[in-house]
């Protein structure tokens, strides 16, 4: 094991958690209101009986995301931590990740070893992505109501995220969004990286996202062995 190698494990800049078992950290970024919190809630419900989960929210001004998750009782309250971002959500997930790292370690100290930590970014713009020092993989959540030209516009979130989630497909008919065009644009922008279409708060659920996370979990367990 070469867990101390900074290139392989930039996350080694920990304070207190010794090496060994380490949770898979998944970032969820994307514009305001696209359905990040709804996705986190649905993922928790789907996966909580399979793996031990913790959630870190980066609310912009309110504690709404954390409170929503608490109200929905998707996890025990001690598995949800909120981080304040000083009006700069992208700074907290990219340029200065120290508060989020603290939050992850606080979770692990509080509830013991976790398998999966979901980190939700505060809603931001199309350029906001997570640092590799903070998450292992990240998904970018957009919705059809935000305009079906977002995949074409690109930006780091759309082009570089490990998974692009196009949410609220149930609204496509109402807002006149062309899903085929979104799929084609995404494929062109992402050079082989996967894109899924969901309606996490409605019928067509979070299953494709959950399946993708299961694959990442399997990979990380195999990689650590």
């Amino acid at each position: 094991m070469h867990q101390d190698h900074p290139e392989i494990f930039p996350q080694r800049h920990t304070m207190s958690v010794p090496g060994g078992h380490r949770a898979l950290r998944v970032g969820l970024g994307g514009p305001v209101g696209s359905g990040k919190t709804a996705t986190v809630a649905a993922l928790c419900r789907t996966l909580r009986d399979e793996v031990s989960i913790g959630v870190v929210t980066n609310d912009i001004y309110t504690r709404e995301d954390a409170d929503f998750l608490l109200r929905q009782a998707v996890l025990a309250p001690d598995r949800i931590v909120a981080v304040e971002t000083g009006a700069c959500p992208h700074t907290a997930i990219r340029d200065d990740i120290s508060a989020n790292l603290e939050a992850v370690e606080e979770l692990e100290e509080r509830v013991g070893p976790l398998d999966l930590v979901l980190l939700e970014s505060g809603g931001d713009n199309l350029t906001a992505t997570f640092s590799k020092g903070l998450v292992d993989v990240q998904m970018f959540v957009i919705d059809v109501a935000g305009g079906d030209d977002i995949p074409r516009k690109g930006g780091p979130g759309v082009t570089m995220s490990d998974l692009l989630v196009v949410n609220k497909v149930d609204l496509a008919v109402h807002v006149g969004a062309d899903l085929d065009r979104m799929a084609a644009d995404a494929a062109a922008q992402r050079g082989g990286l996967p894109t899924v279409f969901t309606s996490v708060a409605r019928g067509q659920g979070v299953a494709p996202v959950a399946d993708w996370i299961r694959e990442r979990l399997a990979e990380s367990t195999a990689g650590a062995a």
């Binding site: 700069c88 200065d96 120290s98």
Partner: peptide, 10 residues
């Protein structure tokens, strides 16, 4: 820009 958390404090 030194990543020590100060940006979230006023």
């Amino acid at each position: 820009r030194f990543p020590a958390g100060g940006h979230a404090h006023s």
